[in-house]
């Protein structure tokens, strides 16, 4: 899977403490999601873009990722301007385009992209395992962290198995169609996937028991806050608080 594509790198954000990044990402995302005024949404968008540029991820890869996300946004653009009541800007055939609708669609576009760029910059620059580790250090419910951790670890194994199964049915001349045979074949694939998952889950637990596991997960890696982490926390904190404060006081309204 190419999913952890952005996690390797040596930029400032790649080296930053994932705990700090997680906290910043959560608070910043929540605040941006709550912004109602267009000027603030713009500000957040620009800030996120700047933040993302410091992660030094190749521009084309970012664009590709954002393009996928914006397919959803595009779908909104195809509906909201017509379906939102308000001041009619112009008529497009039998439909009316309202200025409120365009504003709403635009604001969603800004907010969505702002949050996603920030999360690309802050979260996708860490590996999944270090995120799981940080969650443990951030005192997230240990069972949840363990679940997260194991899911990620064995996702690849199951994906490999799935790929092999698909290859195996292809070799025997299977090609997907809209019919019962296809659906039943997929159902068996899924069923087999669940059986394999279940059995492997049992074996993994047994293997852990063999190594004396008694429910405790030991954290060997400890993170240390560096100066750069504190700078990141302060900058993100200031921006987040500033946005929240201005939203609360309704300043650019």
């Amino acid at each position: 899977m190419t999913c952890e594509a952005f996690s390797s790198g040596s930029s400032y954000l790649h080296r930053a403490d994932p705990r700090v990044k997680i906290l910043c990402a959560i608070f910043y995302s929540v605040v941006v999601a709550c912004l109602s005024g267009m000027p603030l949404q713009y500000a957040a968008f620009i800030f996120s873009a700047i933040l993302l540029s410091t992660a030094r991820i190749p521009f084309r890869m970012i664009l590709r990722r954002l393009a996928v996300v914006n397919v959803f946004v595009l779908a909104l653009w195809l509906v909201i301007p017509f379906s939102t009541p308000g001041h009619v800007l112009f008529h497009a055939g039998p439909l009316d385009v309202s200025s409120e609708g365009i504003c709403a669609a635009f604001s969603i576009t800004l907010k969505c992209n702002a949050i996603i760029m920030a999360n690309l910059a802050l979260l996708s620059t860490s590996s999944m395992f270090s995120l799981a580790h940080s969650l443990a250090h951030l005192k997230v419910h240990s069972k949840l962290v363990q679940l997260f951790f194991f899911t990620w670890r064995y996702l690849h194994v199951l994906e490999d198995e799935h790929r092999r199964m698909v290859q195996a049915i292809r070799i025997r001349g299977f090609s997907p169609r809209t019919d019962m045979l296809t659906y039943r074949t997929y159902a068996y694939l899924v069923g087999l996937l669940f059986v394999r998952g279940y059995e492997r889950g049992e074996r993994v637990y047994k293997a852990m028991l063999c190594r004396g596991f008694d429910g405790t997960f030991w954290l060997l890696h400890h993170f240390h806050l560096h100066g750069r982490d504190i700078i990141l926390a302060v900058v993100m904190g200031l921006v987040t608080v500033a946005l929240a404060g201005m939203e609360w006081m309704g300043i650019p309204h």
Binding site: L147, F150, T151, Y154, L155, V190, L193, G201
Partner: peptide, 13 residues
């Protein structure tokens, strides 16, 4: 936990 996690992974795949 490992079992539920593996089933989660299966569900994801």
């Amino acid at each position: 936990i490992p079992k539920v996690a593996l089933l989660t992974a299966a569900f994801f795949v």
